[in-house]
Amino acid sequence: MAVKFFGQFLVEQGIVTRDALVEAIDLQDHKNLKLGAMAVEMGYITLADIERAHNAQMSKDMKLGDLLVEMGFLTLIQLNDVITRQKNTHLYIGEALVQVGALTSENLQKHLADFKADQAQYVSDGIDLPVKIANSNIWEMTADLTYKMITRVLDLQFRAGKCATVDVLAPNFMMAAMDFSGDVEARYLISVSEELQQSVARAILREGSVAGESAEVLEDTVMEFVNVVCGNVAAKASQMGVIMNINPPVTIHPPATGMPVPEGHTALCFPIHIGDGDKMELILLIKN
């Protein structure tokens, strides 16, 4: 029982072969152009324009399309043209498997229904806080920005699970934490397995392998990820008129029994399912 992508589900169920899935993914890569590439193909912008927008995107929480418009490389009408073309020509993995002859159109619908039933527990319909809590817009933004940074900084594919309140923080290999003060008081925690710590380290250090790195460096990379997210959360909060100060990050090694939530706090837990059943958690320990 784990989070899966549709292709992986089909292979595990023996419905399609691995080779057929690879062939279908290659077909998708060939046909599905990213927004920038599509805009280039449509003759609206150049590769140099995309590079400049990508550089600007590192310090701005904006989608590439919006940034291309803001920087004057695309008009709004052109952006809409590009998005429409992307939508109209997008090839989903199921359709790609049909095109390479691994599935029939009729079977595809049945397998999609089975897949949705299998994955229902992991699906999150946006960010939905389970309790009424002060500054809920800030906590929703914090979770949203964390998701975006997992994609942008860590380059990991994930599926966000449903947020729940918890009384005990579940044990994991390590946690990195940062305290917020100012208009809100809370602790931001990211909990990772040993395998995910390695993934974070590879992305932060920009190295293909981190096999020879010390435990201190590996832990530091998770703290740095937390630092990057929380700094950007503080920036976003300031745009929303809320002052959030941050303090230097720390690491925590939770006991096997987990860590009880301190009295007077609400703990919001956001499960983040990554690839092969591996799980990261974002926990917001909010002072009531």
Partner: peptide
């Protein structure tokens, strides 16, 4: 990582910083 917080950015420049690089860089 606080480069996007306007007050911090301004304070750094006023204190003599030549520039501010935001993380991730």
């Amino acid at each position: 990582s606080l480069g996007g917080v306007g007050d911090k950015f301004t304070e750094a420049l006023k204190l003599g910083a030549k520039n501010v690089i935001s993380k991730p860089f």
